[in-house]
Write a protein that binds this DNA or RNA. Sequence first.
DNA 1: TAAACCCAAATGGTCAGACCAATTTTAATG
DNA 2: CATTAAAATTGGTCTGACCATTTGGGTTTA
Lengths: 239, 239
Amino acid sequence: MSPSVTPHTEQDPKISRTHDARILDDLAQLIADEHIKPGDKLPPERTLTARLGVGRSTIREALTRWEALGMVERRQGSGTYLITPIEPTSPHVPIALKVEAESLIRTIEVRKVLECEAIALAAVNRTEKQMDEIRNCWQTLKDAHEKFGPSHDEDVEFHSAIMRASGNPLFNQIVNQLQEAMRVVYTRKPLGNEHIGDTSFPLHYDLLLALEAKDPDAARETIKDIIEITENEVREFLK
Amino acid sequence: MSPSVTPHTEQDPKISRTHDARILDDLAQLIADEHIKPGDKLPPERTLTARLGVGRSTIREALTRWEALGMVERRQGSGTYLITPIEPTSPHVPIALKVEAESLIRTIEVRKVLECEAIALAAVNRTEKQMDEIRNCWQTLKDAHEKFGPSHDEDVEFHSAIMRASGNPLFNQIVNQLQEAMRVVYTRKPLGNEHIGDTSFPLHYDLLLALEAKDPDAARETIKDIIEITENEVREFLK
DNA sequence: TAAACCCAAATGGTCAGACCAATTTTAATG
DNA sequence: CATTAAAATTGGTCTGACCATTTGGGTTTA
């Protein structure tokens, strides 16, 4: 045979759309077809390469993605194991979007833990001045909501004012960081309906009352409800 | 358990530190050194290959991990962009620089909230493989403790292994960030006695047991005790 | 027989080099 | 100067090779 220089014959042009999303879909489909459950071993990468008709690099990138999200676990010399259940053939929702949403869920999970504690602290430690600030933010949020519907920015500012009143700036800093990460995902991939946060709006007033009353438990419960509404909306989207 | 001493079964030098983790650390370090902020472009993969002395595949796997977590964004033909602030040697950790033990308290406060929840998750979600890893870290911590006394690094690694088992990578990421901030404060201002964490050492074994037993409440309580011991030691120093 | 040992196969991890595809930059052109 | 075309840049994928660890089976040994 001719040495080196392989012509690399014409590739089947059927695809040309981002392989990435297709691979995640195909992988999920395959897992569903094979009835692979959490704890089971996935087919080896070299097999997947043949089965899905893509290079091993591509398979590995997809698996690395899932590994980062804790969906699979790799053991060198042993195999790749499924950790979380993979939903079968979700008809309308491409897996790529699901991965984004998965990431969102994890962010929300952390945010919930932090905000619950920070708000309980705020209910106890808040000064009157900080309370004024919170009331202002609430007014702004309320106006914006009544005029333009759910407004992300004002909502963030309201929460941020509360975090600041906790007495520990670190809470505000980290939650803001998470919030920013969520915003990026939101704006890039609007998850279905736009009114995420709409149903939770009334609860924000309860939050204000709990802070007025310096009731840490009520505040904690309320913010928990608020965040879980968002969480559930995303989970719902995940199907 | 006798030393059957075969060439390859006996290893246990300091490794266990997957190559992968090293790359993530190096990458984070590089980002810190270059003062790369969210929105900025990372060096191209081929440059990173040279800078970090590893193959491009390895670089890509690391970046794919971060992309899955929403930390970076890739644009073909353009570059890879930083989305969230990167954790490690904290150029961006605002607390460490200007604050003393006061800020340590705040950091610990946040850490407590996060770790309590993450460990409860870990107790439920951990896989057997992750449990093995935790056991190894425990052994290492125990050895180091008996030989050299309280050892910060091994302790951090032990906690990190637990965080990783929570199933939500974000916990580990943020706690590591806080941990790093604490380390900076520690080393710059050694808080009196070196044996911070000494009294809490026995509790770490209880932690291991709680995780073995998959008991989230016991795990949560134990870690709470552990962290509060540190917290009180710092408070004591503050007074 | 049962345990210990050894080795080959299986499997994930890394590397190198090439080529593809999208984007950005630069040069050429009118 | 604006437009367009070519070149350089950069992420995306493919192939094939080799390394490191784990697994399992066959062999030896107590």
